[in-house]
Every structure is written in C-alpha cells, then in structure tokens.
Design a protein around this nucleic acid. Structure first.
Lengths: 214, 214, 214, 214
DNA sequence: TATGAATGAGTTTTCATTCAT
DNA sequence: TATGAATGAAAACTCATTCAT
C-alpha cells in the first residue's frame, strides 16, 4: 500500500473526474444513442458510481448537453483555427473543409453525437444542436457571400439562394463525414471542393442550370 | 344494434387495420422518436387496443421496421416513377430531385422516420435504413456514371470518386429537405442542380480544383 | 383447474382492485407514514404488482390523496348521518361527537391518515387535509352559533371567539380519539361534553373567566 | 492571514457549532418534515460540511432526537417557569396556558417539530415525542386533580376521567396553537380558559351533562 | 476542527409484452 | 377479430453515510 496505483477508492480532483465522465458519456451516447444509453452504463464506463455522475452532472439531460457543448466547441474551434481570415474565399473554404473532415475523422464519437444522435426530435437538447448547426451554416454562408462579392458577380445571388447553397454544402459535408470515415480528410475535402466549387463559380458568373434546358 | 355505425367494437378487415396502425405509428415515431414513443400511445392513436397491435405487428421493433419499409418504398417509388429512363443524365437527375423534394415535403413524418430518427445507431432497424440510403446513393452513382460515359470524359473518374460525389449529393439533398421544408420542391431542386451540376460537368471535362491553386 | 380459487393471476374487475389497493395503501400509510411507505410495500399488501397500482392510481401522491379523500368522506358521512337536524344544539353536538369517536375507533388507520400523517407540512396533499379539517371546524362552529342563538345569549359572542371555541373542541376531540382509542366512544364523547358544554353554556350566559379573577 | 474575519475555514468551539447545526436542523425539519429534509440541506443551512454534522450528531435520527429534546425542554421550561406553585389551580392553569401559547407563537419551528412532524408514526423518535406529550398531560392532570382536591369535590372524579380531561385540554391547546398562530397568546389562553374552566368547575360540583338530558 | 470525494442501497416511475376471455 | 387485466425488468434519480486528508 502506498504505491501508486494501489488505490481502491481513488480520490481524484473534480475537474479530472468530470472529464473522465464526459469521455465515457460521449462514447456511450455515440454507441447506443441518447435514450438507449443508461446512466448505469455510463458510470461503469467512467469507472465511478452513479451517484457521483449525478453529483457532478446533475441529470441525463444536462450530461448530454455538456457532451454536445464540448464536442461542438471542439469542432468549431478546429474549423475556425484552420481558416486564414485574409485568404481568398476558395482557399478559406478548402481549409475549413479539410479541418472539418480531419476533426470528425479523429473524433468519430463526438461527431456521432453531433450528427446522428442529436438530430433526434423530441429530446430536450435538440435546440443545442440545431443552434450549432445554424452557426456552421451561417459561417459557410458568409464565405459564399464573400466569394460572390469578390467576384463582382453580376446577377446578384438572392440571400435565400445563398442560404440554400450553404445548407446543401453542410449536408454534403456531413454525409461525406459519415460515409467517408474510412477515407482521408484530404480526399473528402477535395471531393467536396470539386463537387461544389465550380458549381458556385458558375453560378457567380451568372450561369444557371435550367430545367427546360435540354 | 346491427345498424351501421352502431357497433362499438368494429370488426375491420386486417389490411385496413394494419394501415391505421402504421399511420399512427409513423406519426408517433416521427413526433417522439423511437425510444420515446410508447406502444400505448401508438395504440391509442390508432384507435385500437394494445394487444391488437401486437397481434398484427408482433413487436415494437417489427412495427418500426414496417414503418421504415413502407415509407422508404414510397419514397423510392416516387423518385423512380419520376425519372425517364431514356432522358439525358442531367434531365434524369433533375426529375429525381424534384420528385424527392416533393415527396418529402408532402410526407414530413415519413421523412422524419427515414432521416432523423432512423439514423440512431444501436437500434435494431438501423441496417434497414442504411440499406435504403445505400440504394439511393447507388442510384445516383449510376446516374453520374452514365453521364460521365455520355460525355466520354477523358481522365476517367475513379469509382471511389463517383461514389463520394453521390454521397455528397444525397447528403445535400437530405439537408435541404430538412431545412427547406418551407420552400417549394422546385426551388430546392433548382438550388441543388445549380450547386452540383456544373461542378460535375466541370469534373467530367477534366477540370479540378487544386488545393495549391492560390 | 377451473375450480373457484384456483386463479394464479386473478382477473378482478377494476373497481374491486382499486378498493383493494386503497385498503392496502391506507393500512400501509397509517403504519409507516407517507414518505416511509414504499409503493412496493403497498403493492405487496394489495396482492398485486406495482405497475398495476400505477396504472390505476397514477402516482404516490394521487394514491395518498385518494386515501385521504375516501377516509375523510367516510368520516364526514358518519358524523353527518348521526346528527338530527332539528334537535337541540347540545343533543346534536353529542350525537356528532359520539359518531366521531365511534367511527375513528372503528377505523384507526383512516384516522391515522387524516390526523397524524396528513398534517405533515411540505407534502402536496396537505391542503386536502386542511380543507377537510376546516370543514369539520365550520360544522362545529355552526352548531355553537346555533346554540348561542337558541339561548338568546346576550353579550353576543364574537365570531372569532366562536371560531376559536370550535377549533379548541375539534382539537380536544382529535386528541381524545388518539389517546382514547382503547376507550369506548361513549366515554370519550361524555368526557368531551362534560368538559366543554358547561363552559359553553356559561359563556352564553355572559359568564367569563377573567385572568384577574383570583 | 490570522486576522479576524480572514479565515475561511473557521475554527469554532464545539458548543457553538452544535447550536448552529441544531438551529438549522430545526428550521429545515419544520419546513420539510423528517423524511423530506436531507442532511445535505441541513449542512448547507448550518454553513458547515456534512461530515461535520455526522461528527457531532452521529445520524439523522439522533439529530432529530436532539432537536425534539431541545425544543421540548425549552417549551416545558417556559411553561414551568410561568406557573406559581402556591397559586390557586385556575390561576396556575391560566399562567401555564399563557406561557404555552406565547412560547409556541415565538418558536413556530420548534412547535412544528413537536406537534406536526413528530407525530408521524413509524419514525424512531416517535416515543421521544410521545413521552413529552405524556409529561405535559400529566402536569395538567395534576393541576386538575389539585383543583378537585381544593374544591373538596364530592363525587370524586375517576382517575381515568381526569386523565381524559387533561388530554382533551392539551389537544385543544395544541389545536389552538396551530390555528391561532395569528392571534395573541393572551387571546388564545382566554378562549381556552373560558371554554374549559367552567366545564371543569361544573364537573367538580358534581354537575354532569347527560346524554338523556333533552 | 474540518472537508472534498465517493458510494450502497433504495426510491418512484415507465414500458414492452402477455394472458384469459 | 378484439380487449381489459396484469406483470417482469429496468430506468432515472436520491440519500444517509463514510473515507482520506
């Protein structure tokens, strides 16, 4: 006794324990989903007793919210850190996408919580996730807007159209992140840029695909 | 007694009852999510007793699977019916997208089950949904491949690249279907075509966006 | 099989089951108190499973409220049935007290719920009990008022004074009911009448005990 | 450091800390009831950590018992101090009642513990309270007995009858203390004396109310 | 003297599912 | 075909209590 590692009831500072719990919760929620994950399982995964989880995180809802907040902030931080503010719009978009795919590939459980699980309607944290998604979409929207301004694009794009494009791009990225977990972030980012960028460029030049256009 | 409308415990043919139950289940699952929806609530919504639901649909899982199957088939049928086999690829894509957006807008509960709810991992029907999604992606992939062949596109697109594009397109459509519920299917479809088609066209011509391209 | 009494899972009509549950709940709450009584124990005492208790009575709170309501109504009915409306006030009071003591002696558990347990502050049914007590006090107050009017009592008794007397009488009766559970209702009623009635009579004649009166 | 008021973990003598804890416990038990009050809440209210409460008071039960004991002794001391041993019986009763009502009005939380909460059967301190109540009743019984002896009351009152009267009086006082919290102790005491004393006097003179007495 | 960290045991409540008719 | 009656199993959450410092 007295040796490091001999602890039976480890005494660990609160901050550390909270991180352990969040780690365990993210993994468990990712694996099972919100409703199917039990507090019991999370506590076991965290290596503590259930009451301690409640003492620190208060409820299943708050625990999930804390997970979502942490993972969303990490993702946003990664993307934001990657983007060089002064660079041309396509460069910015590329950097952002690259960071996005690399982060989600590196943190699949966090991504599962943000994407697959948290969409679930009816749960009390739905707005937390919706807000994060809206923020990301707005970020992309601003990028597209800036690019359009750069290009002096003539038949100005309607706001609603830009917003729609942003949502489409976000959805495409999310889908690729899920599908392409096995592929490198660079490949995914390139796919999306190829897919989207010349479409955007064309749009900005005033070109439009017309349904009647045979 | 015996008069039409006087019976309280109606004897209704099995097929009709089953449809009532599926309707109620789809609505309830869409509103609450799989776990949160209770068989009690579904039975009440269907206007029958719980044992009858079990008699016909056997279990919550099977019930949900039946819902997913029905809604997935309806969506696929709608898309397939809209596409003219002989038409040029862009025309086919346009028709498919239009049908997709119109169907999801017309059946938001069905769409919620396919998209939001059913993604939830860990649930036993996850594969049902994944399969449907894969089928749709494959359909799109085939379209793109056909278009590429049409265009005699020279630096042949890698299979993996085409699949990635297909997934991106599907994700973009899904995202738009959720975001743009308020907008007309035609608008959404146009947005996506503008967004995606010239990118594809450009790709087929061998143009590529390059990260190094400053 | 087929013999009466061979049931393993008895099928009993809802009304009967509800009464069984209320009986068990009254006994258990009386023995343990509201918080200390567990739904498990009540279910076992009622000879059913816990879910059935919840199916019929919805929650511990509602269950307790139902108990209080039932016992309060029974007590009030017993007292009210015993009082002859036209009789002189002392006669009415006597009959009421007698019925009160006999009923509480015959239903000690019900009385425990109304008196000992239900006074507990902080519980959500407190007002239910307070209301019943107020109703009884009001009934007595009316009796005293009527007696005073009968007696043409001269220095009219202040309303507040009458109300105070009524509360004192109720408290005395409650105390006796608890203490004198072993004694006959008739004895208890006589004790109270002797204790209280000539005091009232004296008051009505204008006599008052004065603190200064050595 | 070392300056008065600078310490955060105050070193306070045991006696003082114990009083703080009892004060907090009395207030909390009064507000929530025995079961609903948590040791956590009490510790917070006392401004100390939970282990310290256990160090000094050992368990929830013992803590509650200590509260009951302290409040009961304070009430008894107040009543006893007010009664002049040599005075005539009615005078003694008057002084005791007055002190009782004034003390309970001044210490409503203490009274709540003794009266409302502690009656709860099934809890391990029930006897503590019952003992106190018995002691008070005995005190009153002695007073009545003395008065009867004073009055050379002829048809000697049976012991059981005197005890019953004492209990009735105590219950009346308790009821008034709860109902009449808003009224002055003097008013309440006067109400009771008027209510009870002439009844007692009459009894002692051999007068009895008879059920048959129409 | 004083406390942050930790838990075993128990609570109320819900739900998918079945039996007897 | 249809249902009222019934339950096993498990979930979220709380609490009195103790250990290590």
């Amino acid at each position: 006794m007295g040796l490091v590692g001999t602890q039976s009831k480890q005494r660990v500072p609160r901050a550390v324990r909270e991180r352990q719990m969040l780690d365990a919760a993210v993994a468990t929620f990712a694996k099972r989903g919100y409703r199917a994950a039990s507090m019991d399982e999370i506590a076991v995964a965290a290596g503590v007793s259930k009451p301690l989880v409640y003492l620190y995180l208060h409820s299943k809802d708050e625990l999930y919210s804390a997970c979502v907040r942490r993972e969303a902030e990490a993702l946003q931080a990664a993307v934001r850190a990657a983007v060089e503010p002064g660079a041309p719009a396509d460069r910015q978009l590329w950097s952002g996408l690259l960071a996005f795919f690399e982060h989600t590939a590196a943190h699949p459980d966090g991504w599962a919580i943000l994407y697959s699980q948290a969409r679930t309607v009816g749960e009390p944290f739905a707005e937390e996730v919706a807000a994060m998604r809206a923020e990301i979409a707005e970020f992309v929207r601003a990028l597209i807007g800036a690019a359009a301004a750069d290009a002096h694009c003539d038949p100005v794009l309607a706001d609603r159209e830009v917003a729609g494009l942003a949502h489409a791009l976000v959805g495409a990225a999310e889908s690729l992140a899920g599908w392409g977990a096995a592929h490198s972030g660079r490949e995914n980012a390139a796919t999306l840029m190829n897919f989207a960028w010349s479409g955007l460029a064309n749009l900005m030049r005033g070109g439009r695909w017309e349904p009647s256009a045979r």
